[in-house]
């Protein structure tokens, strides 16, 4: 008898193995929880990995204060439903300086409210391992990142000096102050994520499903008017359009797509015929090729 697990079963098992390995080898792991679909899958896998024990680490949400309102309410619902230990960190200095994407530009906003904030939180709680939902298929520089990705005391990633990673033998040795980012979803693709969400019936933020929402079109991107902080140009009037999101982040930096897909099968079907990758909806990657790699070296996930 030769027998194979299906690809989703294999991916699931591999992710669970990574979760268990980190928990066994590190003293203070944390899971980055960004509320998006990858985080939803990550959370689901974490629950599976340790069952019947509860998830043996806290979740951390780095809140830039510009997330969609529905993301925050979904987060609260999850915490409630699964009895999660959630930490929320907002960069207090960024708040004091009133940093925001409109006043300071997307690059600075991301740097202060996301990258810096993340480092602050990791330092504050002295986490030595942080799970992230990044996938290698997302962007070229991620394709070479390790599953256990070493970070220096300053949270920097050195792509030239990565530890070789063989079989499923991960090297989890760090000195005080150093840490790793662990990526259980490394080998998943966007399609795998959707198929898995469907198969496992995993709850996700409703913004992923099409609905009539107020939007303005700006620089070729459809921006949702999530609250009154979005400064409207003289010629801009929000219009109601049937839209959904393929990826979720700060609402002023996240482009929607026009869609009528209100169910998972429809989303998957749209996805199969679609011709743009999900990162296109994110402003930060577009500055220049290689920009993601720079951000990663500086400690952005």
């Amino acid at each position: 008898m030769t027998s194979h697990l299906t690809h989703l079963q294999q991916l699931e098992a591999e992710s669970i193995q990574i979760f268990r390995e980190v928990v066994s080898e590190f003293e203070r792991p944390v899971m980055m929880y960004s509320i998006g679909k990858d985080s939803a899958v990550l959370l689901h896998l974490a629950r599976k990995a340790f069952y019947p024990s509860p998830i043996p680490f806290p979740l951390l949400h780095v809140d830039t204060t510009w997330k969609f309102k529905e993301m925050i309410s979904f987060r609260e619902k999850m915490v409630e439903e699964y009895d999660l230990d959630l930490l929320v960190h907002i960069n207090p200095e960024g708040v004091a300086q009133g940093i925001g994407p409109f006043t300071h530009g997307s690059a600075l906003h991301t740097d202060i409210m996301k990258t810096e904030a993340l480092k602050q939180a990791l330092d504050k709680y002295k986490f030595d391992a942080a799970f992230g939902g990044a996938r290698r298929d997302e962007e070229a520089s991620r394709a070479k990142e390790r599953v256990f990705s070493f970070r220096s005391k300053n949270h920097r990633w050195d792509p030239k000096n990565q530890r070789p990673e063989l079989w499923s033998l991960y090297n989890g040795r760090v000195r005080t102050g150093e840490s790793i980012r662990a990526f259980p979803l490394s080998n998943w693709t966007e399609l795998d994520i959707w198929q898995y969400i469907y198969r496992e019936d995993i709850p996700i933020v409703p913004l992923y499903f099409a609905a009539e929402r107020p939007v303005v079109e700006r620089d070729g991107m459809l921006l949702m008017v999530d609250d009154d902080r979005l400064p409207l140009e003289a010629d801009e009037t929000p219009q109601m359009k049937s839209i959904r999101f393929r990826t979720l982040g700060c609402y002023p930096l996240t482009g929607a797509i026009e869609s009528t897909a209100t169910t998972l099968p429809e989303i998957i079907q749209e996805m199969l015929v679609t011709r743009t990758s999900e990162r296109q909806g994110r402003l930060i990657d577009k500055d220049q090729a290689g920009s993601m790699e720079k951000k990663k070296q500086e400690g952005y996930f």
Partner: peptide, 15 residues
Amino acid sequence: TEIDDYLKSQEQKDL
């Protein structure tokens, strides 16, 4: 239905 069929067939895929 279409996608259900599709997803079922995809479920059987190996790696």
